[in-house]
Design a protein around this nucleic acid. Structure first.
Lengths: 333, 333
DNA sequence: TGCGGTTGCGTGAGCGCTCACGCAATGCAT
DNA sequence: ATGCATTGCGTGAGCGCTCACGCAACCGCA
């Protein structure tokens, strides 16, 4: 009989069923100490009135509150992020967390982080070049874990990837297999200002050659396979004697493979192609893609550890920073 | 001075900073009507004491409560589900929802749905053969949307895919292009009891041929590319004059392509290969995969509509069931 | 007939926050 | 000096649930 259609609460059900709140609660949650008859009646009433228990109220009142962590990625359409999300999902279910995912494909990052922070207990994600101070402020007290970069302001955590040691091991191994003239397909998000990626820098340091030689910067969009293909053609045109190509990502490497195929170049005898990311997807190309693995490496374990630490009630103000020493060298079977 | 390290609340900060709750709230949420000096002091104190506002309390007290929908999939490692999740993520951000994802890769479904239901306002997902009554009970009043099947018990919503009309259009088009002898690669999750999929049934109805002919049942694992490859070889051995193959999924179709390549069979002149799912991934094969599109079809729009309807406060007890008439016939460019 | 144990249910008292106020102090015009 | 708006802050009163109790009514068993 209310004029305003106010939310139907546990009290309404109690009144309508002629019992107390507690009894309604017992009925809804399948608790003991209630007769089957009453339970059925309460359930009927609550269905009839369209009762929807407030998860906020119940979580507030309950002792053991559920934890949920938020993951921020560019886009789930990029298999790198979706495989990463899959791994974090495993870790989450192991720790009893829920995982809520946001992509900043459409939305601007800061408002999204702010919204997300109101709904989760920790935020982890790839925040490209976003300002750390602003992120910290947007998170409003919710711990934030930066992926793929190292936090510089206290209060932010991070799990970084140290490409240098990975690249050194990679280049060594490739040389052992006969590689001599390297090339790299670097990625550059179309329309943004170009700055060398940490992958390119690690590549240049480990191959010890001048930065300008044998690097093709590909203008990549989201699905970077095509960019890799185009880049590979460009590379083969400019540096025809290249015998080993390292691509910025597995997707680009897949494009490179396609380009090589179309030119009738045999992989890996005439040319070796190596990707970065370690996508399980890399197993479906022919031949299977060799890759510097991030997915499948201990990175997610580290993330889970950092999140676990940050979620500890006592541990505010501490900062956790890790750098995975080297992505595993993984050769997809 | 507390012996028990009880959760630090807004009240603690207020006391320590010598202000009221409300002032702390104003400081934390960047609201006006507070001097910069006080704000700074409150922020300092809250950081020092490690104050973490309770999202449950604030959401309970706030008027406009955030909505979040839960998505249940087999595994994000399967690109079909991750692309679907990406689409739902778009829809969610459009509607101002958060998206929390669970996979029942490891966990049993019912307890997971129960857990999820305590954290979200609606659950949508693929629940293979799970019992509808049990799902309904596990959801405890939270609306549930079944994907890829039609709800039979009232209280559950569903968005199904009508493969029949899609297949009729598909087969017509293929015949127009010269297809005459069809084959299908059917999928069967290894270790379970086999029952013909709705895709196989639609295939058989639309091609009007006895169920036993030209169907190879592949024992698929998660990454079904290999299964598709093996199945394709089997199919070509058994039915060598097949000129058109329809695979259960795009992944299997990719395997089929690989098998064809290895036999030197030209696609599409000698043999046409068609997948189902419409993965954007299908664009990276050579030639690009042709597919009955589910991803990219209006299915997600429909899901969003159903969720929106189910979230309406008034609309409990209503049931929403849709069947997308036909997946779009999509040819990946 | 008495007594301890179980079953079924109800009653405060919070959980930690925000909203709508209220009220003093200050500003800046007239 | 008087008026009125603005700024800065505090005070109840909830939001809708669950927990720890309490208290009858009932059971069986001696």
């Amino acid at each position: 009989m209310n004029s305003m259609p106010h939310n139907v609460t546990i009290e309404d059900i109690a009144a309508e069923a002629g019992v107390s709140r507690q009894t309604v609660s017992r009925a809804m949650n399948g608790m003991p100490r209630i007769s089957e008859k009453t339970r059925a009646r309460v359930l009927e009433v609550s269905e009839r009135l369209g009762y929807r228990p407030s998860r906020f109220a119940s979580n507030l009142a309950r002792v053991a509150k559920a934890k949920t962590v938020g993951l921020v990625v560019d886009s789930l359409r990029n298999p790198y992020y979706s495989e990463l999300a899959a791994e974090l999902l495993d870790a989450a279910s192991l720790n009893g967390w829920q995982l809520t995912i946001s992509s900043h494909e459409n939305e601007p990052v800061l408002p999204m982080v702010a919204r997300l922070a109101g709904e989760v207990d920790a935020v982890v994600g790839y925040f490209g070049e976003d300002n750390e101070e602003e992120l910290l402020a947007a998170a409003r007290g919710v711990p934030v874990v930066l992926l793929g970069r190292t936090a510089t302001v206290p209060g932010l955590h991070s799990v970084d990837i140290d490409f240098d040691s990975g690249f050194v091991a990679l280049i060594d191994e490739l040389r052992r297999r006969g590689a001599a003239r390297f090339g790299m397909l670097e990625s550059h998000i179309h329309g943004t200002e170009y700055a060398p990626s940490s992958r390119r820098l690690a590549y240049e340091r480990s191959t010890e050659h001048p930065s300008s030689s044998a690097v093709i910067v590909c203008e990549a969009e989201m699905q970077s396979v095509d960019a890799g293909e185009a880049g590979m053609h460009a590379l083969l045109d400019r540096y025809p004697d290249t015998d080993t190509v390292i691509a910025f990502s597995d997707l680009m490497a897949m494009g490179a493979l396609r380009a090589a195929h179309s030119r009738g170049i045999d992989i890996p005898s005439r040319l070796k192609v190596v990707g970065i990311d370690g996508l399980s997807l890399g197993a479906v190309t022919s031949p299977a893609l060799t890759s510097l693995a991030i997915v499948g490496s201990p990175i997610i374990e580290q993330v889970a550890e950092v999140v676990r630490a940050a979620l500890q009630p006592g541990a505010v103000g501490e900062q956790h920073r890790r750098a995975i020493p080297a992505p595993l060298w993984r050769e997809s079977a």
